[in-house]
Design a protein around this nucleic acid. Sequence first.
DNA 1: ATAAACTATTCCGTAACGTCAAAGTCAAGA
DNA 2: TCTTGACTTTGACGTTACGGAATAGTTTAT
Lengths: 252, 252
Amino acid sequence: MEYSINKLSKMSGISTRTLRYYDEIALLKPVRVASSGYRIYGRKEIDTLQQILFYKELGFSLDKIKKFLTAPDFDMETAFNHHLVELLNQRERLDGLIDNVKKSLAAIKGEITMSDKEKFAAFAQRLVDENERKYGAEIRAKYGDGTVDASNERVRGITKEQYERAKRLNTKFEETLKSAFATGDPAGELAQKACELHKQWLCIFYPNYSKEYHLGLGELYISDERFKTNYEKLAAGCTEFFREAINVFCKE
Amino acid sequence: MEYSINKLSKMSGISTRTLRYYDEIALLKPVRVASSGYRIYGRKEIDTLQQILFYKELGFSLDKIKKFLTAPDFDMETAFNHHLVELLNQRERLDGLIDNVKKSLAAIKGEITMSDKEKFAAFAQRLVDENERKYGAEIRAKYGDGTVDASNERVRGITKEQYERAKRLNTKFEETLKSAFATGDPAGELAQKACELHKQWLCIFYPNYSKEYHLGLGELYISDERFKTNYEKLAAGCTEFFREAINVFCKE
DNA sequence: ATAAACTATTCCGTAACGTCAAAGTCAAGA
DNA sequence: TCTTGACTTTGACGTTACGGAATAGTTTAT
């Protein structure tokens, strides 16, 4: 059974434009092309399209979906784990936004008159990051935006002592990680100690620490350039190494 | 006090590229431009930038932020309310994705067998998405958001009775299909009755039933392994037979 | 034969910038 | 004064996953 692009489109609910796009990026090629240039799809292509739609529903990018389909021995479990971590991060960020918007709304409805826009803006700014202005820039410069943005709510209440402690922990952590990297064994004692230090550091900003989140952070370090360059400064390949270490650490 | 683009960039943590972009879209213009073409910012621009960053932290688009800043009597409360609703919707969607990814992960790991019930739920979810994708915007444009949400709710939160009815229908359908397959005639009375039962089953989840969709479903059953194995359990070759039957059924 | 329906290939646009590239500007040391 | 280096400018392309439009060729039906 053969299908024109329009037939396939109507069957699947996917626009012809999209199907052409999938052809263009080699995600879904027609089984053959007629002499007229018309695309012709077969049964196998319908099957593939269904799979594509399935992965799409889970929020995977087309690029990853392509890898799923082309590499037959793709490590699905790892890929899904990565994806889950990413989604969890996204949700946490959303939670933060929602929280702040709710607060701002309350402020608007409350004592602020809408006419006095400037007053409100000033107030709202104070509302969001009183502490952020004090330490935020400093922290941001050191650890990258992600730390501040993702944990705005928690960072806000951080004390100077805590900040000093974080700084000390971080120094110690970097030293330990560097030594650990020299051993080349991410499961070794040194590497695991680095993980422990990192966990302590992390707990300052994220009181609700979980292994799941720690694991996710390992992924974040690799995928986020800002973190990666930070760690790569210690040693080339250090980020990957640290991720391995975290993987071991969190599985114990 | 006057600031070069670099100074402002370093003070605010915003890249020069971004500042130029904000100039380009008229979100933040420099106070003046030197004869050399260099941008020069003043104190007022710093304040404006702070405001921009505040709104950005709440997840507003630059376009909306511009309206906040330029329209002096903007209805903040309404805008914030809309924004909040949008964020909540996004989170709900994320929750759904996370749920599905978790389930898929469990399935991959083999922790649970994709039971019939879950298959069922997955399928229902897919129908919702498809329904939303196809008609959502249209309906929403006509009747407002409420309608779609209610409609989706109906599908997602199918009642126990509906579920029971679906189950009964499905059993009956399978029996009929099995008998029909024995006759070998996809255009015969029994096969057509099976199609009718299938249609009724389908209509529980898909109120906007159309022959076209039913037809497409026939293809889906053959191409999707999860469905295919389900039907092949009844009899070998049964899936193909059923598709033929649907073809006849929908052409009447 | 001609109109209707279908299909193809560009190309532009989306949001919010990052990342070069080529070229002009400014302050300071030799 | 010349040159070097730091700084700045304006393009222009890349990113995601397509939507939409323009233009031109193909197939099908009457």
